[in-house]
Design a protein around this nucleic acid. Structure first.
Length: 885
RNA sequence: GCCCCUGUGGCGGAACUGGUAGACGCGACCGACUCAAAAUCGGUUUCCGCAAGGAGUGCUGGUUCGAUUCCGGCCAGGGGCACCA
C-alpha cells in the first residue's frame, strides 16, 4: 500500500498554487510601492485609464475583462520605461444607493462606502498594477466640492444656464432625464415610459460647442470609427437655409406677418405644396386661441408623445389653419398652413415647408390630405416630361436623393447642389421688411444637457434662491455645499426637498431667508472630469493643478464599454472644453486613444417552466454535439438557451470571486484576454477557463524544467541546434510587442502559446548541450516576460524559479535581436497558375535568375504544367513564386 | 427608413500593404504512462477521396500571374439613430 498523503504531497509540489503565490506577490509589490506614481518623475508619461466602476457591491466579469486589458497596457508601458499613471476610483453617486436606502433602511453613504470596500478588495485580488494612493470617490465632499466650484466657474462663463423647458420625466424614479438617457422612449435606468413635463432646470450649454465637438472628431484618429460615427449622428450637423415666408394678410392672426422655416432642401422650393407648424408653434397657438377644434387637435398631438413606438405607428395628421403663405419666388402662389403632428417644435423653427415628391413624410401627409405632388428632381438620364407625367398624380415613394432639377423655372437642368446655391444666393439678396428673405444656417440635433435631478444621492447644485436677489450662486468660500446626512426616504420625490433644516438658509447677498437649490447634478457630471482629478487628487484648493493636469492629460489609452459611446464620452469632451475655458485644464480632447471592449457573454439555462438557473447550479453532460444540462440540486433537466450578455435577469453570471478562488486571478485574466478579439464579445465557458488553468500549470512546469537543466553559465558561442529556440523566442517577442501596442491581446496569447510549444518540444527531446541549455534559459526568460503583463503573479514565481534578479514587474521589456529574425535560407511556395505545386528552398541571397532556373527544372512543376510552355515566372522576393503556363 | 459593422473548420478565431487559407486555443479521436482514473506527454483533426487528386473563406459577377483581402450586385446576422425638415 502506498501512502496517500505522500502522493498528495508530491502532487502539490509540482503544481503551481495560485492561492498561496498570488497574495504573496501582491504583498511584495505593495511593500515596495511598485505602482505608486509620482508627478515629478522625469521619464516620459503614459496615462492608461479604464472607465471607473459604479460601486454596486460586487465586481462582474465585464470589470475583470476591462481591467485585465488596462493592466496589460499599464504593465507593458512600465516595462518600456514610461512613468505610467494607472489610477482607480468610484463613480459613487446614483439611484441604486437611494433604492437600497428605501428598501433596507441603510443610508446611501453607508451602503456606497461598504460596497466600495468590498469591491476594492475584489479588484486588489486581481493583482492590478493600480496606484491606490490616488483613489477617489465622486460622492466624497473632497471630490464634489471641486465639481461645485467648476459649476460656478462654468456659470460665470455662460456655460451653465437656467431655463424653463420641457423635460423628460421618469415617473418611476421621479426625476428628469437628459435626451441621451431616454432610450426608445423609456428611462435608461428604470425602463419606465418617459413623460413630458415643463420645469425650470439647469443646463450645460453643450450646444455652444456643437460645431467643434463635431469637427474635432476627425482628429480623434485613435478612436474607433464606430464611436465617432455615433457621436457625429448624435450631434447631427446639417447645412440649410433659414427661410422667411410672408403670410397672406387675409386669414393671418393678429401680429403675425411671416413664417420662418428651416430647410436643408431649398432646391426643392418649387415642389412645395403646403406649410406645416408644430402644435406648440406660436402661430398654431394664436389660431387655436380662436379655434376650439384646432385647440383640441393640438392637445391630442401633445398627448401622443414622441416615444419610438408611437412615432412608428402614428399616422400623419394635420389641421388646416386657414392661414396662407406666399411663395418667395411667386407672389401669386399661395400655400396652406397646417398644424401637423409630425413637426417638432424644438428642431429648427418648429415649422417646415412640405415638398411631397421629395420627402416621404411630406408625401404621406399630402396623400392623406389630397395635396398636390410636384416632382422637381429626377434621376440623371431620365426624360423630364415622361418623368413628370409618370409621377405627377400620386407617388408611393418620395425621391429624396440627388438628381437634376425639373419643373423649377430658373433651376431647371441644374444638379441638386447647384440649385441649393442658386436659391440660397437669390433669396439672400432679396429683402423683406429690411432683412434678407433667407440666410444660410448650420443646424444641430444636439440639445443642451439638462443636469438637474430631483434626487438626494448626487452632487448638490451650489445655488441659493432668494425672493429678493433671485438666483444667487453659493460663494466659493462657502463650498462645499454638503449633503445633509439626516434625511428620510419614506416619501416620494426628492428627500432634500423634505429636509427643512438644510433647505432653508440665509441669502448670501442680502441675508434674508432663502432656500437652497434642492436638485442635484446628473451623475454624468461626476464622471465628466474624474480623469483630470486623478492627476492631482491631493489638491484641496482647486479641482486640478495646472502642472499635473497638463502633464498627464490627455489620457493616452482609455478603455471601456461601447455603451458609453455617446453619453459619457460626449459629456467628457464637452466638460474638458469647459475646463479649458475656465482655466482648469489647457486642452480640449481628454482621451487621445479610446478602445471599446466587447461584453462577456454566457450560455443561459432555464427550467422548462421558465425560471432561469445560474451556471454555478448546473451540471453539463454529453458531448459537444448533444449537450444536456441538469440542475445539480434536484437533477431537473434544463433548457440550454442562447448565449447572452451576463445579466442578473438571465442569471447567466459567473462571479469573479469564485473563479479567482478556484483558479487564481491569473487564470481569469488569461482567459479574458485569450480567445476573442478584445473589441468583440467573449463567451465565458468552463472549458475555456480550464484550458487557461492548464496553461498556467504548463508554464510552471516548463520554467521549472528549464531551471533544472544544468546550472553552468555558458562560455561558448551558440551553435546551430540552439538557434531555432532563440529564433522562436525573439519572433514571439517581436510579435507580442507589436500586438500589445495595438491591443490585440488574443494574438499575444497565441504567440505565447507558440513559444511555449517550441520550448516544451525541445525539453521533451531532452537536449542537454550547454548551448541548448543557454538558449532555453534565454527563451524561458523571454516567455516569462511576455507573460508578465497578462499573468503577473505566475510570472513572478517563474522569474524567481529561473533565478533572475529583481522582480518580473520591474524588469525592462527585452530587446529583440533582429539578426535572429532573418533566416539564411528561404522556402518559397511555387504556384502554377495560382495553385501551389511545390516548395523550393534557396539561399536568402539567391538571385531572381537562380530561382527561375531551379523552378524550370523542378519535377513537380513540370508535371503540373502538363507539357505547356512557361510563359512567365513571377518571383515576389521573400514571398512566393508563380509560374504562368 | 437612414447610417455603420460582421459573415473563414464542430466551436472561438489567425492570415502583415493582394502572395502557402485555417496560426493559436477549445472540443473530438488515436496512442504512451497507469491495475484503473485524473493529470501529463506524443499524434490526428476543413470537406470529398484508399490514393493520386479535387473542392473550399455567405452568394454572384469582375479586376489580377495570383483575391478571405480590391471593385459591382445580392443574401444573412448584429449594432446605432430615427417624424431632426
Amino acid at each position: 500500500m502506498f501512502s496517500v498523503s505522500n502522493l498528495d504531497k508530491n502532487m502539490r509540489n509540482d503544481r503551481y498554487n495560485a492561492r498561496e503565490a498570488e497574495p504573496k506577490w501582491r504583498k511584495i509589490w505593495d511593500d515596495k510601492e511598485l505602482f505608486r506614481t509620482r508627478n515629478d518623475d522625469l521619464r516620459p508619461k503614459y496615462y492608461v485609464l479604464e472607465m471607473f466602476p459604479y460601486p454596486s457591491g460586487r465586481i462582474h466579469m465585464g470589470h475583470v475583462r476591462n481591467y485585465a486589458m488596462g493592466d496589460v497596457v499599464a504593465r507593458y508601458k512600465r516595462a518600456r520605461g514610461f512613468n505610467v499613471l494607472h489610477p482607480m476610483g468610484w463613480d459613487a453617486f446614483g439611484m441604486p444607493a437611494e433604492n437600497a436606502a428605501m428598501q433596507n433602511k441603510t443610508h446611501p453613504a453607508a451602503w456606497t462606502y461598504a460596497n466600495i470596500d468590498s469591491m476594492r478588495a475584489q479588484l486588489k485580488s486581481m493583482g492590478l498594477s493600480l496606484d491606490w494612493h490616488r483613489e477617489i470617490a465622486t460622492c466624497d465632499p473632497s471630490y464634489y466640492r471641486h465639481q461645485q466650484a467648476m459649476f460656478l466657474d462654468f456659470l460665470s462663463k455662460g456655460l451653465v444656464e437656467r431655463k424653463v423647458s420641457k423635460v423628460n420625466w421618469d415617473p418611476e424614479d421621479q426625476t428628469v432625464l437628459a435626451n441621451e438617457q431616454v432610450i426608445d422612449g423609456r428611462g435608461w435606468r428604470s425602463g419606465a415610459l418617459v413623460e413630458q413635463k415643463e420645469l425650470t432646470q439647469w443646463f450645460m450649454k453643450i450646444t455652444d460647442f456643437a460645431e467643434d465637438l463635431n469637427s474635432a472628431l476627425d482628429r480623434l484618429e485613435r478612436w474607433p470609427e464606430k464611436v465617432r460615427t455615433m457621436q457625429r449622428n448624435w450631434i447631427g450637423r446639417s447645412e440649410g437655409l433659414m427661410l422667411r415666408w410672408a403670410l397672406d394678410a387675409a386669414g393671418a392672426p393678429a401680429g403675425f406677418t411671416e413664417l420662418e422655416v428651416y430647410t436643408t432642401r431649398p432646391d426643392t422650393l418649387f415642389g412645395a405644396s403646403f406649410m406645416a407648424v408644430a402644435p406648440d408653434h406660436p402661430l398654431a397657438k394664436a389660431v387655436a386661441a380662436h379655434n376650439p377644434l384646432l385647440a383640441v387637435f393640438c392637445d391630442e398631438c401633445r398627448r401622443m408623445g414622441t416615444s419610438a413606438a408611437t412615432v412608428e405607428t402614428a399616422e400623419k395628421k394635420g389641421f388646416n389653419t386657414g392661414v396662407k403663405v406666399v411663395h418667395p419666388f411667386d407672389p401669386s402662389w399661395h400655400l396652406p398652413v397646417y398644424v401637423a403632428n409630425f413637426v417638432l417644435m424644438d428642431y429648427g423653427t418648429g415649422a417646415i415647408f412640405g415638398c411631397p415628391a421629395h420627402d416621404q413624410r411630406d408625401l404621406d401627409f399630402a396623400n392623406a390630405y389630397q395635396l398636390p405632388v410636384h416632382p422637381v428632381v429626377m434621376p440623371k438620364g431620365e426624360d423630364s416630361l415622361a418623368y413628370t407625367l409618370a409621377n405627377k398624380d400620386r407617388m408611393k415613394v418620395a425621391l429624396d436623393g440627388d438628381g437634376v432639377m425639373i419643373n423649377s423655372r430658373f433651376l431647371d437642368g441644374m444638379d441638386t447642389a447647384a440649385a441649393f446655391n442658386a436659391v440660397a444666393n437669390r433669396l439672400a439678396a432679396e429683402s423683406m421688411g429690411g432683412a434678407p428673405v433667407a440666410k444660410r444656417k448650420v443646424n444641430f440635433r444636439l440639445r443642451d444637457w439638462g443636469i438637474s435631478r430631483q434626487r438626494y444621492w448626487g452632487c448638490p447644485i451650489p445655488i441659493i434662491h432668494c425672493e429678493v436677489c433671485g438666483v444667487v450662486p453659493v460663494p466659493k468660500k462657502d463650498l462645499p455645499v454638503i449633503l445633509p446626512e439626516d434625511v428620510t426616504f419614506d416619501k416620494p420625490g426628492n428627500p432634500l426637498d423634505h429636509q427643512a433644516k438644510w433647505k432653508h438658509c440665509p441669502c448670501p447677498q442680502c441675508g434674508k431667508p432663502a432656500r437652497r437649490e434642492t436638485d442635484t447634478m446628473d451623475t454624468f457630471m461626476d464622471s465628466s472630469w474624474y480623469f483630470a482629478r486623478f492627476t492631482d487628487p491631493w489638491n484641496v484648493d482647486s479641482p486640478t493643478t495646472p502642472a499635473a493636469v497638463n502633464h498627464w492629460l490627455p489620457v493616452d489609452q482609455y478603455i471601456g464599454g461601447i455603451e458609453h459611446a455617446i453619453l459619457h464620452l460626449l459629456y467628457s469632451r464637452f466638460f474638458t472644453r469647459g475646463m479649458s475655458q475656465t482655466g482648469h485644464a489647457a486642452l480640449d480632447e481628454p482621451f487621445d486613444g479610446l478602445f471599446t471592449q466587447g461584453m462577456v457573454v454566457h450560455e443561459t439555462y432555464k427550467i422548462p417552466s421558465g425560471e432561469w438557473v445560474t451556471p454555478a447550479e448546473i451540471r453539463i453532460e454529453g458531448s459537444a454535439t448533444s449537450r444536456r444540462a441538469f440542475r445539480i440540486a434536484d437533477n431537473v433537466e434544463l433548457e440550454i438557451g442562447d448565449i447572452e450578455k451576463m445579466s442578473k435577469s438571465r442569471k447567466n453570471v459567473v462571479d469573479p470571486d469564485d473563479i479567482i478562488e478556484t483558479y487564481g486571478a491569473d487564470t481569469a485574466r488569461w482567459f479574458m484576454l485569450s480567445d476573442s478579439p478584445p473589441e468583440r464579445d467573449v463567451n465565458w465557458t468552463e472549458d475555456g477557463v480550464q484550458g487557461a488553468a492548464r496553461f498556467v500549470q504548463r508554464i510552471w512546469r516548463i520554467t521549472g524544467e528549464v531551471a533544472d537543466l544544468g546550472r553552468k553559465e555558458r562560455d561558448v558561442p551558440f551553435g546551430d541546434d540552439s538557434i531555432t529556440v532563440r529564433r522562436a523566442a525573439h519572433k514571439a517577442l517581436a510579435s507580442v510587442t507589436e500586438d500589445v501596442e495595438r491591443l490585440r491581446f488574443n494574438r499575444c496569447v497565441a504567440h505565447v502559446y507558440e513559444l511555449s510549444n517550441v520550448i516544451s518540444g525541445v525539453l521533451a527531446k531532452g537536449a542537454q548541450s550547454d548551448d541548448m541549455i543557454a538558449a532555453l534559459r534565454e527563451a524561458a526568460t523571454i516567455l516569462v516576460q511576455l507573460l508578465t503583463p497578462m499573468m503577473p503573479h505566475l510570472a513572478e514565481e517563474c522569474w524567481e524559479v529561473l533565478r533572475n534578479s529583481g522582480l518580473a514587474a520591474q524588469a525592462q521589456w527585452p530587446g529583440v535581436d533582429k539578426t535572429l529574425l532573418v533566416e539564411d535560407s528561404i522556402t518559397y511556395p511555387v504556384q502554377v497558375n495560382g495553385k501551389k505545386r511545390a516548395d523550393i528552398t534557396v539561399s536568402r541571397t539567391a538571385e531572381r535568375g537562380d530561382i527561375e532556373n531551379i523552378v524550370r527544372e523542378n519535377e513537380q512543376i513540370l508535371r503540373a504544367l502538363e507539357g505547356r510552355a512557361i510563359k512567365k515566372i513571377i518571383v515576389v522576393p521573400l514571398r512566393i513564386v508563380n509560374v504562368v503556363g
